[in-house]
């Protein structure tokens, strides 16, 4: 077996040069797809993810419709070219699980009871993956929902924290996730202070877990600010253009 990769170097920096508590660089945009009711795109480090939202619309097949609220459906899918080794386009066990997990992370934020007998469909397409796609996928899906004009209690932001080479780190990338000791993805509703997704993979002491959770929530709050910026940006630019024309 080859020697274990060092994930933290002598200077305390991570494989991609970040310090332990740094996020990757993040870029977000809304309204990128013209045929969807709402859409958004995120680049988080080397992750590139598109999200599209359709609805509320009539449920097909009809018998799935719920009499008292909207049906939320979510598909998380990785493009065959999104990873090093070609991934079969058929939904894998992992993708089916992530679809469910993301759906359940977003569900408490949406006023589903306002639209009985309809469905809201979310499609998350991972174009390029580098670890932490469930979190980035949740973040971008929440943006697409807001873009679609679906009433929400709060935005949902997700971020992971974990432990690599004995150090607690924020926003793990693919190598850190695979080779590290633990990974704690968290989805968070920042204004309400509620957690809607909490998973853990690996081993941490209770003390470390609490620290990792708080670190992940800190990360969520940072991403939340970028999320709000992305939502505002679209309309602020139009406003500025108009004011420019008037001058």
């Amino acid at each position: 077996m080859s020697e274990k990769i060092r994930l933290i170097n002598e200077d305390g920096l991570r494989v991609d040069g970040r310090r332990p508590r740094d996020l990757r660089s993040i870029k977000m945009e809304i309204g990128v797809l013209s045929n969807a009711d709402g859409s958004a795109y995120i680049e988080q480090g080397r992750n590139k993810i598109l999200a599209a939202v359709y609805g509320p619309r009539e449920v097909h097949p009809r018998h799935l419709a719920l009499p008292d609220r909207a049906l939320l459906r979510c598909r998380y899918h990785m493009a065959p070219f999104s990873v090093e080794e070609r991934k079969s386009p058929a939904p894998s066990r992992r993708e089916i699980e992530l679809s469910k997990v993301i759906k359940e992370a977003l569900e408490p934020a949406i006023f589903l009871e306002k639209f009985p007998r309809t469905s809201i469909d979310i499609f998350i397409e991972v174009l390029q993956a580098d670890g932490g796609t469930r979190c980035a996928g949740t973040t971008v899906a929440a943006l697409a929902l807001a873009d679609a004009g679906i009433p929400m209690r709060d935005l949902v932001v997700a971020c992971a924290a974990g432990k690599v080479d004995g150090v607690l780190v924020l926003d793990l990338n693919d190598i850190e996730d695979k080779e590290g000791e633990a990974d704690v993805p968290v989805a968070y509703m920042p204004n309400l202070g509620l957690i809607s997704l909490l998973q853990m993979d690996g081993s941490l002491t209770i003390e470390e877990f609490n620290q990792a959770l708080n670190l992940a929530i800190e990360g969520c709050k940072q991403i939340y600010n970028l999320q709000r910026e992305a939502l505002r940006a679209r309309y602020v630019t139009i406003k500025e253009d108009v004011e420019e024309c008037l001058r």
């Binding site: 934020a109 807001a146 009433p151 929400m152 209690r153 709060d154 935005l155 204004n191 939502l231 602020v236």
Partner: peptide, 9 residues
């Protein structure tokens, strides 16, 4: 002012 879902108004 532009507000986003969840903002305390």
């Amino acid at each position: 002012q532009v507000v986003t879902p969840g903002d305390l108004l």
